[in-house]
Design a protein around this nucleic acid. Sequence first.
DNA 1: TACGATACCATTTGCAAATTGGTTCGCTTT
DNA 2: AAAGCGAACCAATTTGCAAATGGTATCGTA
Lengths: 255, 255
Amino acid sequence: MLDTAPLSDSSNLALGRLRALLDEGSFDAGQRLPPERVLAAQIGIGRRALRRALEVLEAEGRIWRHQGKGTFLGPRPVHSPTGIEELSSRTNPLEVMDVRLEIEPALARLAALRASNGDTERLLRIADKIASSTDADALELWDGALHRAIAEAAGNTLLLAIFDMVDRVRQDVGWQVLRERARSRDRQSAYVEQHRRVIAAIAQREAHAAEQAMREHLELVRDGLLKVMTRPPLNEQKLSSVTLPNSKDKLRHGT
Amino acid sequence: MLDTAPLSDSSNLALGRLRALLDEGSFDAGQRLPPERVLAAQIGIGRRALRRALEVLEAEGRIWRHQGKGTFLGPRPVHSPTGIEELSSRTNPLEVMDVRLEIEPALARLAALRASNGDTERLLRIADKIASSTDADALELWDGALHRAIAEAAGNTLLLAIFDMVDRVRQDVGWQVLRERARSRDRQSAYVEQHRRVIAAIAQREAHAAEQAMREHLELVRDGLLKVMTRPPLNEQKLSSVTLPNSKDKLRHGT
DNA sequence: TACGATACCATTTGCAAATTGGTTCGCTTT
DNA sequence: AAAGCGAACCAATTTGCAAATGGTATCGTA
């Protein structure tokens, strides 16, 4: 028990009354208590004293409060993250790459098994676009399009939704710098070749080969990401006047 | 071109005027057109004739309409499903099982690699609960708790979020019947034994064994589901309509 | 029969009001 | 002087309602 500043008299009174109310089960579990103003009047104390008592109960985990909603009994319900923003604030690039390494090889395998001819044609068209792209931005776009086209070709609605969710997290603010740095020029050729292999395997219905090719590709991407993360500074020094667009203004998207 | 019922005179007039408006670029792309009532007055025709013309344009993909929103130019924007309800209306139990077969073995493997001692203790405790459960409902609850505890033990926030998403879809209305039937009594013992194997492998840090055990478990669950789905009546004559599963056409859930 | 006009239904949007916890200020009481 | 009470105000949330808009049905008219 950590005795912090002791409560004043009337607050203690309120605390006792509240504990009595809670213990006697006057209110159902998970139920919302009356508004503070009402409750204070019922007990016969001021709102401030009541609030101090509620703070204690909240710290004890017996109640939880939220502005605009009310005061509720029981532990605060676990917040199942449904928003992308919140999710991406709780994860990190390495976790994302781990997930991609679990999901996307499976997607490639399924695509090899179930892709329609139209799907494969679309993949080949995107591959052409990638090969003929010079701009870094354009390449990034077509790369994303390729991965998603494979996910679509896999023909599983739920898996596609999962892929989109991971992709939104991946594209969320904060990691653009990393992604761009990870795309070092010398790796680009390797990426293109790996893409080619994945698409070829899918087109030829070689499920295992497609899965393996995608896994190798993502492992290379992950390694590139790791190298960048472990050496964040990347000082200019010798590369001062190199074309490097300095990652533009993509930083600071939000406030 | 499929000539359906030819439009009447004034509808054809409206169609011509509308095409002219769209072609001349009076409205920006993606812009909302004036309300039907206004547009009809501007052109000088009735609303019914206008609507017939709009139907044609919508079928051509040049516009799209939505009740309460308006009429918009261009192709209907792709709807990225974000709600569980919508997602579960677009998928089916087989897809969900396929996804679980991709995700959960990976979770078991990661759990074997990264579970804390507290995690394994928790798994064992849940296993006890399962073994000592007789009620079908209680068993269902503890089964879900076990799978989620494994997902938590894997220690990847994003993967856990994905697991929760799949789980919400799985628990969504409409499939309870299937799930309950799939839990035939004779399979229960097999399930318990498989759970035990998964937990043991995780506790002993045998990653590959944990992955394999989880895969075998889910495959058995999937097989049970398949058997139930291909024989929905359950009470009628033995196998009157044994039209082999033909697993491709997935039972239609949406309209 | 085709067309227009009107009315009504269903869905979406927008906004204002009410509710509620969070905070500050002034006054009274001890 | 410190504590408590009441009031007022702020911020977040919910609720209710009206307006806008596409969807549909009905009726009158040429």
